[in-house]
């Protein structure tokens, strides 16, 4: 029955939740069959034979009434107590837990490890207690890993946390479960449970992102920070302007009718202050949270956008900005 109802269980808390779920399901099923069976039997047994039937009133039975108050009460209190215990366990974060920061924003999760590595896939070591310290940059989000049976909302104004201990290597889904706007349903990530050694290796390698070339860093950020949700690379229309051929355009039209040339300054301003200038035909839907990018990240992202265009850099007044090329 577990396979029919529930997804794979891959954390220490999951079996506990599952057994409770299955217990309640089983008891409910028995009661449902009982009630429905009795109902159908009565409907058949006491069906009306002639229109003039006048059944005699049935005496009420105190014992019966009391029994169906007392028995369900005992059952639900049992279930409450069970659920209460595992809920407390879910909330008592072990002090030795390994902490990963989760930053949620419309419509992306970003995971940050203690050594500063950021990733858009959640790598966790198998068999170690992991705590997620979560915050949101804009609206409410939800952090849900079905296989681990953990879920908690992510709030903009304070940290919330969940913890779990993964028990099985493999890839699992991570969903946003608190409705957060347009691309809520695409706000999902992969949780990759790996062995402790593999995890350590990954962490070390990923930690070297300082060395990777700028456009490469930009490419990573493009997918990690959710740019791909709104800006295509192949010129197709999405929520925001496509990056294809964007850089170097000289006839970039704004919603106030002016045109400008797309250079580094414009790109930088658009990332940091999206509301400052709006491209004609688009609304300002871009989150303001990109202002938290570091200088190097910004430069990387701009370099990446530049790579998406074959145009020459704009000729005029680019003195100090082109210097970095």
């Amino acid at each position: 029955m577990g396979d029919f109802w529930l997804p794979e269980a891959a954390s220490t808390i999951a079996p506990e939740v599952d057994s409770l779920f299955l217990f309640v399901t089983a008891v409910s099923a028995i009661l449902l069959v009982g009630v429905t069976g009795a109902m159908l039997y009565f409907v058949y047994r006491y069906r009306r034979q002639s229109p003039g039937e006048r059944p005699a009133p049935v005496e009420e039975s105190k014992l019966l009434e009391i029994s169906w108050i007392v028995i369900p009460t005992i059952l639900v209190l049992l279930v409450f107590n069970w659920g209460f215990k595992s809920y407390v366990k879910m909330h008592a974060v072990p002090s030795e837990a390994y902490e990963i920061r989760v930053q949620a924003q419309q419509w992306n999760f970003l995971f940050e490890y203690p050594n500063g590595v950021t990733s858009d896939t959640l790598y966790v070591p198998e068999g170690e207690k992991v705590k997620m310290r979560m915050s949101s940059a804009d609206v409410l989000h939800g952090f849900f890993i079905p296989a681990f049976r953990v879920k908690y909302d992510i709030l903009p104004n304070r940290y919330t946390s969940v913890w779990f201990e993964a028990t099985k290597e493999g890839d699992y889904d991570l969903f946003c479960t608190e409705y957060c706007g347009r691309n809520h349903s695409e706000m999902d990530k992969v949780v990759r449970v790996v062995s402790q050694d593999e995890f350590d290796n990954w962490l070390e390698e990923a930690g070297t992102s300082e060395d990777i070339p700028l456009p490469e860093l930009g490419k990573q950020l493009y997918s990690q920070r959710g740019c791909q949700g709104c800006h295509s690379l192949d010129g197709s229309e999405m929520v925001g302007p496509s990056f294809q051929g964007l850089y170097g355009r000289t006839d970039h039209e704004m919603s106030d009718g002016t045109t400008l040339t797309v250079d580094e300054n414009y790109l930088r301003e658009s990332i940091l202050k999206p509301e400052a200038r709006i491209v004609a035909g688009y609304n300002n839907l871009m989150p303001g949270s990109y202002s938290s990018l570091s200088e190097r990240q910004l430069t990387g992202l701009i370099e990446f956008i530049k790579e998406q265009s074959d145009k020459e850099p704009p000729a005029s007044d680019q003195g100090q900005t082109t210097a970095t090329n």
Partner: peptide, 12 residues
């Protein structure tokens, strides 16, 4: 309804 009232199951 009883099921989703169970604290730990409701989390899931």
């Amino acid at each position: 309804g009883i099921m989703v009232g169970v604290l730990s199951v409701d989390v899931h």
